[in-house]
Design a protein around this nucleic acid. Structure first.
Length: 463
RNA sequence: GUCCCCAUCGUCUAGCCUGGUCCAGGACACCGGCCUUUCACGCCGGCAACAGGGGUUCAAAUCCCCUUGGGGACGCCA
């Protein structure tokens, strides 16, 4: 156990989004890499905008992603620790005590009913064109931030700022710094949007007579289309959406790691243990990264392909249970062993489990649509009906227990008639599925079983 | 407007710190081809970038400056 202590400090004021998840991830990775402690702290000082539902979403999303926390609110095995409470709404006493310390030392004062932090230096008044008002400025040396990712950053902090609102609630800058002191946080890893706040925070640390922790400002994730950083409103921004769509959390985590960090070589798909081993602050990029849902989808497919049968089947079932369409309901209602056969037959072909209802719906109902375009195409050349009748005649004697046996029968039939395997495959697929895409035809026949295959052949021949 | 951060293929990036090994490598996407029993996967190939200008140097993607562009922050939100 090292003495590294990092924290992820979200506020439950909205959906949990990709940017927050990556900040949490980088903190978690750094804690795991160093053998340090990962703290979850809930910054719920904005009483107006907080909600328990969003709070729960934070817990659930982090847990789903596998980002367990060592200290913080207790949830699903995570949490605990002796520097709580870990919700800022429960830490009023701590803040009052720290504010009093500032007032005692003359570094805080009251004005307009609020408490302000006093900067040190010569004061002067100036009219701010942008804000259209006269403000009091303070002359002083710039704040120097030694950022672990950006290097040396200088910023002038030249106005006193509010630390306790007139309604008595402490503001973000104050509680953030106080808690990081009280919780012995050693490294602050957060989004670059906080870089300009950091000068305030450093002054507060100085005001408390505390050496600031190490700062590491990570690049932002930019929205896929259009200008600006990704926000909760953007398409694909919500973690729960990927959970709902049946994405593998480890695929999402792997993808997120690569947005602003890399192992230093060409590797992309890596087990989490390897990422933990290699992750370090100097390896984090300085420039913002644009989100790319296609790359994420590809990563997800790569992970899906290698899932053990049991987990893949469970994932498919869990996903389909939440889907509303008839194909999904029929699939869930089907015999479990049959469901498993179908899903495993499709596994190597799918980009995501969300494709399942559209891709494999015909396995679970006799009432599937026959694509007219595909039908036209299949019947455009040769005599597919004749081929299907020949194949139909073979069915009774066919061994349906193995794909290879079915394949051999069809090959033998083709050889006898002087046709190719494909002459039977296309029309048979149309009869069985109503389309021209899908898993292997022999696998389809085996899984559907002789009875259903015969019926579907007959139906197409009758039409 | 002010301040801060950033700048390599369409996108994510390697290379930059410690200049020559880079007519710049990988991945996603896209386009061909192969494989094949459809569709995928896979494999092979292709397209495609050092933002612009100035400097330093024998030599610059790499160091410095300017411009431009992108991003962020400027709340009694977090």
């Amino acid at each position: 156990m090292s003495n590294v202590r990092v924290r992820f400090a979200p506020s439950p004021t909205g959906f949990f989004h990709i940017g927050s998840a990556r900040t949490a991830l980088f903190n978690w990775l750094y804690a795991r890499h160093t053998g340090g402690t990962f703290i979850l702290r809930i910054e719920d000082t904005d009483k107006e905008r907080n909600s328990e539902a969003f709070l729960n979403l934070i817990y659930e999303s982090l847990t789903w992603l596998g980002l367990n926390w060592d200290e913080g609110p207790r949830f699903a095995g995570s949490g605990g620790g002796d520097r709580g409470p870990y919700r800022q709404s429960e830490r009023g006493d701590v803040y009052r005590e720290y504010v009093q310390r500032l007032r005692d030392s003359g570094r805080a004062y009251e004005k307009d009913g609020a408490v302000w932090f006093r900067l040190e230096g010569e004061r002067y008044e100036v009219f701010d064109e942008h804000r259209k008002k006269t403000v009091t400025k303070v002359k002083g040396p710039p704040v120097v931030i030694d950022d672990r990712i950006r290097g040396r950053v200088e910023r002038v902090e030249d106005e006193d700022f509010v630390i306790v609102r007139s309604d008595g609630n402490p503001v973000f800058h104050l509680v953030n710094v106080v808690d990081d002191i009280a919780m012995d946080v050693t490294h602050i890893i957060r989004g670059e949007d906080h870089l300009s706040n950091t000068s305030k925070h450093v002054r507060l640390y100085e005001g408390f007579g505390v050496t600031p922790p190490a700062f590491a400002h990570i690049p932002l994730i930019l929205k896929q289309n259009g200008p600006g950083k990704m926000s909760k409103r953007d398409q694909g921004a919500l973690i729960e959406e990927y959970q709902r769509r049946g994405y593998l959390p480890e695929a999402l985590v792997n993808f997120l790691c690569l947005l602003g960090w890399n192992p230093g070589d060409d590797r992309e798909k890596m087990p989490i243990a390897e990422i933990i081993r290699l992750f370090d602050l100097p390896g984090v990029n300085q420039s913002n990264a644009r989100f790319d849902d296609r790359k994420l989808a590809h990563m997800n497919m790569a992970y899906l392909l290698e899932q053990p049968a049991d987990r893949f089947v469970a994932l498919a079932r869990e996903h389909l249970t939440r889907r509303e369409e008839p194909a999904a309901r029929a699939a869930v209602a089907a015999d479990a062993a049959y469901f498993r056969e179908v899903v495993l037959l499709c596994q190597p072909k799918l980009k995501g489990v969300e494709e399942l209802p559209a891709y494999a719906g015909y396995f679970f109902t006799e009432d599937f649509v026959v694509d007219p375009k595909v039908r036209e195409k299949v019947f455009a050349k040769g005599d597919p009906a004749a081929r299907l009748r020949e194949l139909r005649a073979e069915l009774a004697a066919m061994d349906f227990s193995r794909d290879t046996a079915i394949e051999e029968s069809i090959k033998a039939l083709s050889a006898r008639g002087g046709f190719g395997f494909g002459d039977y495959q296309g029309v048979a697929r149309l009869a069985l599925s109503g389309t021209n895409v899908g898993p292997s035809i022999t696998g389809m026949m085996r899984v559907l079983g002789r009875e259903r295959v015969v019926a579907r052949f007959d139906r197409l021949l009758a039409a």
